[in-house]
Simulated scan of single mutants.
Amino acid sequence: MISVEQVGPLATIQDRGRPGWFDSGVGPSGAADLASLGLGNRLVGNPEDAAGIEVLLGGLVLRALRDVLVAVTGAPMQATIDGIPVGHASVLELAAGQVLRLAAAPVGLRGYVAVRGGIAVPPTLGSRSTDTLSGLGPDPLRPGDQLPVGRAPSTYPTVDLAPVPELPADRVEVRALLGPRDAWFEHAAALFEGDWVISADTDRVGARLDRRRGPPLARARHGELTTEGMALGSIQVPPSGQPVVFLADHPITGGYPVVGVVLTADVPAIAQARPGQHLRFRPAVFGT
């Protein structure tokens, strides 16, 4: 069992999500940066689908009510145990009564706390993820919450520390493919020209972009588009011309044209990008 003593701007329980419910109007949700949660689970010897804690910007304080093994990954929030700094993306031992504290991240947006055995809150539709759009899953964490920890797996961690690349502090570059509604724009390739900026209007649903430099995404066709399915990483363009890149809690349908789609492997980079950070799209190239 782990006790939540303080919470920063937002902390939620996340796993790999609940795919397979689109026909019921339910999106997959899950960790915004699946790669970082997956790394944390590997470090503590968990299966990939174990639930952990997603932390926005930092400020989370946890107290172990029994001995637990944890790892902190994602945005590099300086972790301390009883005030002593410990390594990022490393295996950490918390004895009963010890306190893990995460400071504010200097770069990046979301950090993850993986616990050996996983956070064992009751699943909803097969997942323990909090979906901030639909309200499914456990509530966001609050001080005083006590989180159950599942049974430790039979495998045991084989590394103490994982080398991870530093998150960019300036411009983020991601790969994208045009379509399926690029014909709705006068010059869809303008998506790849110049820079965009992550706006303050960004959350687990999506990251809204402002134009920093380059031509606008002007419509060639106007009117309403028949509602159609939306995928993770879809770049939807409302009438304002400010694209929205859909993230983990995105709606599963939408009526605005999608000019392109970010490759799934690059979605975590947008999930970690902060408001004010520059973003550049690159055309995805395969076979080279």
Rank of each mutant, 00 (worst) to 15 (best):
D203L: 01
V7N: 01
G8C: 10
G179D: 05
P168E: 01
L178T: 13
L217E: 04
A176S: 11
R42M: 10
G255S: 08
L133E: 01
L69I: 15
L100G: 09
M77D: 00
G40Y: 03
G118Q: 06
V7S: 03
L209N: 06
V121M: 03
N41A: 02
G118F: 03
G117L: 06
E166R: 15
D160E: 14
P251N: 09
P275I: 12
P216R: 13
P163L: 14
T124Y: 07
G126M: 06
T226H: 00
A103T: 10
S199C: 02
V26M: 12
P47R: 14
A284F: 14
D49G: 14
T264H: 10
I252A: 02
G97N: 11
R63M: 07
F286G: 00
P85H: 03
L62E: 05
S127T: 14
I81P: 04
R151V: 13
P257W: 05
P215G: 11
R221M: 13
T155I: 09
V61K: 14
P165W: 12
N41K: 07
A51D: 02
T124R: 14
E186L: 15
V26L: 14
A89H: 11
P157A: 03
A75F: 04
S240F: 08
P85G: 06
A284T: 12
F286Q: 08
L125A: 08
G194V: 08
Q146T: 15
G58T: 13
D201C: 00
S129A: 14
A51I: 09
Q78D: 11
G87E: 13
A176W: 07
R274F: 02
T80Y: 01
A231E: 05
D82R: 13
G126L: 10
V7W: 02
R282V: 15
R211C: 09
V172W: 05
A188L: 09
G117T: 10
W184A: 13
G135S: 11
V121D: 01
A271Q: 02
P140Q: 09
P138Q: 04
L147Q: 07
A271G: 12
G30W: 04
A103F: 10
S36F: 07
D210H: 14
A103W: 05
I81D: 00
L136I: 06
M230T: 13
R221S: 10
F22V: 15
V205A: 04
L60E: 02
I2C: 02
D145K: 09
R16V: 05
R16C: 03
R181C: 11
G97P: 07
R18A: 10
F281Q: 07
T132C: 06
A75T: 08
V72K: 01
